[in-house]
Design a binder for these strands. Structure first.
Lengths: 234, 234
DNA sequence: TCAAAAGTGTTGGTGATACACCCATGG
DNA sequence: CCATGGGTGTATCACCAACACTTTTGA
């Protein structure tokens, strides 16, 4: 690698020192199941945090874009590749990783749990209810909280939660997702009004089946309204 | 540095390869002068972008927090240290830097231009009107646009623009900042109403001086209302 | 016929916008 | 006295929150 002359203080340390920082990506992969918001976690196998839950992450390869690294992790773990993924923040405290200097960029992702099979053999990789996670390895609890906060802001204005649901869903299911993410109860009538007003839904003229009560109508996300703005900045 | 065993694909490349990525920080330092939003830029000295404007940045040192790196840059360039600084996004395309693999985390900062002296000898370091910047070195125009967008969102709900103004300011000045940042005109009566409603201002019972018209009242930011939530996550 | 959830409208409050005139000061 | 910007109030509108009863289905 050539010398990077733009940086003012390069002379104070040798070139090699500046490459002593590793860069990783951590994915907060959210799913929705049993009326709960869940996150994909794995048992940590480094000694300092033995047995604690950690997020899915990996080092960024020298020849892959940062965004690509997060897609790779998601693909490797869930088999999914057309998923919602958003960069949230980069965490870079000196001592955040016990094994050395690792700076990590956090992404959050929204997937439909039913759409894929996990390789459950791997270190107890599984979907864990977000509400039940009190602590995690490294600074991962902090990362999770930050991503959840971002998700909460995001869903107020942007039609992203559809990624957590199957193609066809009822309004009840949609509302449950919002309630799970926001951790609050919502008024049914206002909720329905809002969504029809937004024009985010297409009525499929189908009904739920196998429910022990009056079946609700099924809808799909009005994807056509949202031209794919692929803002690839990073 | 010890082996980092948490990462799944470590075996495919040698340890050394993973430390071939350098990490930098770039600061978008905003200021306000002559009713314009300005940004602190410097002439680029690497050959591929010779003579183009670039942001102020530097490599992150192995022993400093990511946040600290951005404070260091700001301090070095402006002499200021109690300033508003916020992480925005990390840019990590493989070829974003011609000299090698450099991933950069962007921060934006808000400072009062009058509060300090620049070392103007350095590569034409100066305050440049944001509106007049059409292109920049590297992906810095993209970084600038992203930070400006973030600033626009931020000022809608958060009292941050006070950082761009002197301690005492008139409502006209405050409004000018909003108009400069948002690049639009605002209604004076509604603007005043909103700010008094918010209770963000303290009336100093002083008047502007040396203005060729009726002097306006001076205010200061009601800092007491905003307990310092130092959310240090990165 | 009962339980459980679906479906449906109206009202009041709050915050945002649009808009025009008189006032104080310096030149 | 004139030019410049400072200072003020009201009407309208859109959006949000609160709230209760009837309907449909399966058991």
């Amino acid at each position: 690698m050539k010398q990077i002359s733009r940086f003012s203080h390069f002379g104070e340390l040798s070139d090699k020192d500046y490459f002593r920082i590793a860069l990783s990506v951590d994915c907060v992969i959210f799913g929705f199941e049993d009326d709960e918001l869940k996150v994909l976690v794995i048992k940590c196998n480094i000694k300092e945090y033995k047995g604690m839950w950690s997020l899915l992450g990996d080092l960024v390869r020298p020849d892959e874009d940062l965004d690509s690294a997060s897609y790779r992790i998601l693909k490797d773990r869930t088999g999914l590749d057309d998923v919602y993924l958003e960069q949230v923040q980069t965490f870079g405290k000196v001592n955040r990783h016990p094994a050395g200097r690792v700076i990590t960029t956090a992404y959050f992702s929204l997937v439909n749990i039913k759409d894929h099979q996990l390789k459950l053999s791997d270190n107890e990789l599984h979907w864990h209810p977000v509400k039940e996670i009190a602590e995690m390895a490294f600074d991962h609890k902090n990362i999770l909280d930050t991503c959840l906060e971002r998700l909460r802001e995001k869903i107020q204005d942007h039609p992203v939660v559809f990624n957590l649901l199957p193609k066809k869903f009822s309004l009840r299911e949609l509302q449950s997702v919002y309630e799970a993410v926001l951790n609050c109860e919502l008024d049914r009538r206002n909720f329905r009004k809002k969504f029809f007003m937004m024009d985010w839904l297409i009525d499929l003229n189908e009904l739920e089946e196998d429910v022990p009560h009056r079946p609700g109508k099924l809808y799909k996300f009005n994807a056509a309204k949202f031209a794919k703005k692929t803002k690839k900045v990073s």
